[in-house]
C-alpha cells in the first residue's frame, strides 16, 4: 500500500509544481520584460554576479585546461588557419586603407552612420547561457551603462549579435548563430543584398535569397546592411565558404563562416545607437 500512496503523492506534487510554473510563465510573459519577476531576477543576478565572477577568475585556468584538453585538435588546426589568415589580412589591410577613406567620405556626405564613429560600451562576457538550446551570452554591462535592448554587439570587428534583455549591470546578447536571427546583409565585393540567418551553434551561417545568376566571389566578405535600421552598415559578419545552386530551388545555397569565434568570446563592444526616440528607437524590429 505504501508504494501507490507514494506514487499519488508524487503525482500531486508534480501537478502543483507544474501549476506554479505555468503561473510564473504567464505572469512573466504578460509583464513583457518588466514587472516584479524581472525585478527579482535582476536583483538575484546582481547578487550572484560577484560570487560567480570571483569563482570564474579562480577557475579560469581549470576551465581553460579542460577546454584545451577536449579541443586540442581544433586548437592546432585553428592556429594554423589563423597564421595563414594573418598573412593574408596584412596584405588586405594595406589595400583597404584607401578604400576605407573613400567610403567614410561618402557616408559622411550622405549623413549615414559610420561604424567607427558610433559610441561603444566595452563589456566582458561573464556567462554563456546555461541552457544549450539558447544561443545567448551574458555581458557585464547593463542599463546603468547605457545599454538597451536591440543594440548591436561586436567583438573586434565582427558582428556578435544583439542585446536581447538588460538589467542594471548585466545584459543578455542573442548571438547571430541563433536560427531565429536574421541579419540584413550584403556581399562586400558585389554589393548583392541578402539576409544572414543563424543555423545553430555548430553550423555555418546561411546567406539567403541570392539568385543563381548573382555572382559570388570565393571567400567574399559578408557585411551588415543598414537596410531596416537594425544594424549600422559594413560590420563584418563572415566570409562565404560555399555557394552552390540547388536543383529545384530558385536561390543559391550560400554558407558563411562567421568572423567571430563564438566559442571563445571574452570581450565585446555594444554599439550605443541613439535614435530620435531613445536608444532602441531604430533597432526594434528584426529584419526578415
Amino acid at each position: 500500500m505504501a508504494a501507490p500512496r507514494s506514487g499519488q503523492r508524487s503525482r500531486f506534487t508534480v501537478m502543483v509544481l507544474v501549476m506554479v510554473c505555468l503561473t510564473l510563465i504567464t505572469i512573466d510573459t504578460k509583464a513583457n520584460g518588466g514587472g516584479v519577476l524581472m525585478t527579482i531576477r535582476s536583483n538575484a543576478r546582481d547578487v550572484l554576479d560577484p560570487a560567480q565572477a570571483s569563482l570564474g577568475q579562480v577557475a579560469q585556468p581549470v576551465a581553460d585546461f579542460a577546454d584545451g584538453l577536449v579541443n586540442a585538435g581544433d586548437l592546432k588546426g585553428e592556429n594554423r588557419r589563423l597564421r595563414e589568415e594573418n598573412g593574408r589580412l596584412q596584405g588586405e589591410v594595406l589595400q583597404s586603407a584607401d578604400a576605407q577613406r573613400q567610403l567614410t567620405a561618402l557616408l559622411d556626405l550622405n549623413k549615414l552612420e559610420v561604424v567607427k564613429d558610433i559610441p561603444r560600451v566595452a563589456a566582458r562576457v561573464v556567462n554563456t547561457a546555461p541552457s544549450n538550446v539558447q544561443l545567448t551570452v551574458e555581458i557585464d554591462r547593463g542599463t546603468d551603462d547605457g545599454v538597451a535592448t536591440g543594440m548591436p554587439v561586436v567583438a573586434g570587428s565582427g558582428l556578435v549579435g544583439r542585446i536581447a534583455s538588460t538589467s542594471g549591470s548585466r545584459s543578455v546578447v542573442r548571438l547571430i548563430t541563433d536560427p531565429e536571427m536574421n541579419v540584413a546583409a550584403r556581399l562586400a565585393a558585389s554589393g548583392v543584398l541578402t539576409s544572414v540567418k543563424g543555423n545553430g551553434a555548430a553550423a555555418l551561417l546561411r546567406a539567403q535569397e541570392i539568385k543563381p545568376d548573382q555572382p559570388i566571389g570565393e571567400n567574399e566578405a559578408v557585411v551588415t546592411s543598414a537596410i531596416g535600421g537594425n544594424y549600422p552598415d559594413s560590420i563584418p559578419i563572415g566570409r562565404v565558404v560555399k555557394a552552390e545552386a540547388v536543383a529545384g530551388v530558385s536561390y543559391q545555397r550560400v554558407e558563411v563562416e562567421p568572423v567571430t569565434d563564438f566559442g571563445r568570446l571574452e570581450f565585446v563592444s555594444v554599439l550605443v545607437r541613439r535614435g530620435p526616440n531613445g536608444p532602441t528607437a531604430r533597432v526594434t524590429a528584426e529584419e526578415p
Binding site: 508524487s10 508534480v14 509544481l17 507544474v18 506554479v20 510554473c21 505555468l22 503561473t23 510564473l24 510563465i25 505572469i27 512573466d28 510573459t29 519577476l37 524581472m38 531576477r41 538575484a44 543576478r45 550572484l48 556567462n127 547561457a129 546555461p130 541552457s131 539558447q134 545567448t136 551574458e138 536581447a164 534583455s165 548585466r170 543578455v172 542573442r174
Partner: peptide
C-alpha cells in the same frame, strides 16, 4: 537556471520538474 536566461521565468522550472518526475 531561469535567473540569467532571457526566456520567461518558470520555463526551465517547468521543464526540469517534468524531467525529474
Amino acid at each position: 537556471a531561469d535567473v540569467p536566461l532571457p526566456t520567461a521565468f518558470g520555463l526551465s522550472a517547468l521543464v526540469f520538474t517534468l524531467t525529474g518526475f
